[in-house]
Structures are given as C-alpha cells and as structure tokens.
Simulated scan of single mutants.
Amino acid sequence: MVVFTGYLDFDTKGDTDIIDVTSPVTGIVASSGIKDGIVLVFAPGSTAAITTIEYEPGLVFDLREALERLVPGDMYYKHHERWHDGNGHSHIRASLIGQSRSFPVVNGDIMLGTWQQIIFIDLDNRPRSRRVLVQVCGETV
C-alpha cells in the first residue's frame, strides 16, 4: 500500500466561510498516482469543518442560515469566559459537522455524486490562514 500526503493552504474570511475544495483535492489524488484506495480530507483546528454539499449559491446561503438557526452566534456560551474570544458557537458548529471526511478512490477518481462537492467551512468568527491535509492511501496498479 502507498500513502501520499498533500496540503491545501488558503486564507478565509471567517464567519462560516464555505469553500469548495473539490478541485484541489482531486489534483492531489491525481498527483498521488493511487488508482484504488481512499482519500482522507482533514481540517486541523476546532473551528473548521469538512463536509459535502451541492456547491451552489442558494445552498451555500441555506447552509449558513441553518447553522445560525441550530447554533446561534449571538447566544451566550460558557466558552467565552475562558478565552473571551466570542467563538463558542464556532466550536459547537465544528464539532457537529466534523473535521474530516473520507472518500473512495476508484480508477484514480474520487467517488462523488454528480452534484456533490467537498467543502471546507471556516466557522471561526474572524479570518484565518488554514491548512487542510489530504492523505491518499491505496494501490498504484
């Protein structure tokens, strides 16, 4: 088995910035030479998340609105007493969504649905520089 690791580095706007990372993840899978296996997409940090959606403006808006309804940013969170940074909601949202997703790789392609894209969500309340780890494991033949 071969393991190949790549990284995506980018700046975000914060405040539930939703970024389509499908194309660069696909590029890393192609660079790996792995034909059959699995790709892990992992966002280090407790205020970031990885998931999938149909990446189109209406759904991006709807996802932001749904997260605000589920975990409002303007509520009191006990976490604020610790660091006074006002991002308690960011941590809760990230823990509900999760920091990683794995996808099958078959014949060198990530198995995604027709309208399914891999997204990174910066849930912190301020802009950040982020790094996403992409690790591909499998066979090259």
Rank of each mutant, 00 (worst) to 15 (best):
A94G: 00
I110Y: 01
R101N: 08
V106L: 11
L63G: 07
H80N: 12
I121W: 05
S90A: 09
W115E: 11
V134T: 03
R82I: 15
R69L: 14
L123M: 09
I19F: 06
D20R: 06
L63E: 02
D36C: 07
V105L: 04
I92W: 05
L133S: 03
Q116F: 12
D109T: 15
F120C: 03
G88T: 00
D85V: 06
L59G: 04
A49M: 10
D85P: 13
D36Q: 05
T114F: 12
A30D: 11
D62N: 14
M111G: 11
I92H: 04
N125V: 06
T52P: 12
C137E: 14
L96S: 08
S23P: 09
Y77R: 01
A49R: 10
G113L: 09
V21W: 02
T22N: 03
L8P: 07
A30G: 14
F61D: 15
G37H: 12
I50A: 07
F10V: 04
S32Y: 00
I92R: 00
I28Y: 00
F42D: 04
A94S: 08
R93G: 01
L40F: 10
Y55M: 04
E68P: 06
F4H: 06
A94V: 00
R131W: 08
F42E: 01
D124K: 06
I121R: 04
L8K: 01
G98C: 07
V136W: 01
G138H: 11
R69D: 15
T26W: 01
S95L: 07
F61M: 14
T5R: 07
G86L: 07
N125C: 01
W115H: 15
I97A: 03
E54T: 13
D124M: 06
I38D: 05
S23Q: 10
R130M: 11
D74W: 10
R130K: 13
V29P: 14
G33D: 06
L40R: 14
G108L: 05
